[in-house]
Design a protein around this nucleic acid. Sequence first.
DNA 1: ATGTAAAACGGACGTTCGTTCTATTTTCGC
DNA 2: GCGAAAATAGAACGAACGTCCGTTTTACAT
Lengths: 239, 239
Amino acid sequence: MERPSLESFTARHHLDSRSLCAQIVEAREGAIAVRSAGAATDNLTRIIEATLRLANRKGFAAMTLRELARESGLSLGGLYAYIGSKDELARLIQSWVSRTLRRVMASALADIETSRMRLATAIEAHLLTTEALREWFFFLYMEAHHLASDERRQAVAAERNSEQIFADIIRQGQSEGRYGAMNADIAAGLIKAMLQDWYLKRHKHGERGLDVTAYADTVTAAAEALLDASGETTTTTHS
Amino acid sequence: MERPSLESFTARHHLDSRSLCAQIVEAREGAIAVRSAGAATDNLTRIIEATLRLANRKGFAAMTLRELARESGLSLGGLYAYIGSKDELARLIQSWVSRTLRRVMASALADIETSRMRLATAIEAHLLTTEALREWFFFLYMEAHHLASDERRQAVAAERNSEQIFADIIRQGQSEGRYGAMNADIAAGLIKAMLQDWYLKRHKHGERGLDVTAYADTVTAAAEALLDASGETTTTTHS
DNA sequence: ATGTAAAACGGACGTTCGTTCTATTTTCGC
DNA sequence: GCGAAAATAGAACGAACGTCCGTTTTACAT
């Protein structure tokens, strides 16, 4: 398979806000008071995009529904045809971005076999997904800590799941003798930290003129350097 | 110098909440209505620790001053002898944690010369500082985005400053021919991402039984692997 | 043109917020 | 042990919140 561009990856996996909102409307049939699915998707998209815009600037708790009504173009009362409550709006966004990442990662890795290719593909898929849905992932990261314990547990599980994908790839590579004996969970954690930096510090990377594909190469090189070197005895003590 | 333990590092650089609050009381003399410096420090420490506890659990905006009064043991009116407003309380914490990191990093690196030692020392100092003031740094990271533009610019500058420290060390190593030709700013960003993961995902690391010193060794090894390998031509393309 | 159901509107309600104010208690030099 | 000064507690205030609901507008079938 060719190296995917951001655009082709986004199109193939339906990683735009409208597609996600269409899925939400479909899954929540009955909970939304507006009958026409097309119009409902339009309005929900405007509501969620406005939410991400406002909440990512000033925080979800500080965002008021009056601002959201103004920003989304709907009225205060109109919002309640789409959401049950303000809190439910946050849960909605978070649960769908979590399951989207899981879906895309599984799909992207489906027919890749060698550990070397799986590592590069997983890194690239993670970065392209979070780049396409940048605001969604930023929201998830920043607001997940404030969820009620049930939803929070779900968010932690999703996070752990995506880290496990990397840990499993690393263990596969180790069993093939390709990588050194470093703890796979810890290595996966380091890789995840570098991946999350992409959407958490988007502004910085934009200033440097680094695009997502170049960053994917950088992280892949870093991961392989880390894993290749981990067989040697690296004594890192002072003086 | 010996390898510092968390305890000795904390003691040497005064990295406990009370020490920081004592500095705040001293610097804000006049803005605090309570005369006795000792009592004022006690109460401010309780206010700030309660703030960190509540805000890190549910978000600063969602924390109410009535909760803060209950949690800190003061009354609603009593809080206003120490803070001018709720927003000022957030700015206070953030500005002092920023300047503390800068102070400690400068002090820890003061008489270290070789790039190899400076890198290991900087990583260790960063991790030990954020470990000692874990809640402070978590608060800074999570709430910095919601600041007014003036304070926000200051927070971004502090973040950039600490990244520059690493970039400068890398450039020094490159000029000594020790490291490959990788972009120093990008490498510094990757290192920073791994360092911040320590206090952002504290729960995960705790479960793994990884302590801060072991994590410092891991990150140092990862950084050196990354920098050593960056001279080679690593072609990371698919198929 | 007219009638009807769907959708959007926006003001009102009760609550709770940050902040202020004052009555009361505590502290401390003498 | 007394009185002035400092500190506290918690009621009170206006503003703003999330939510609800009666009304108006829109869109389409007849």
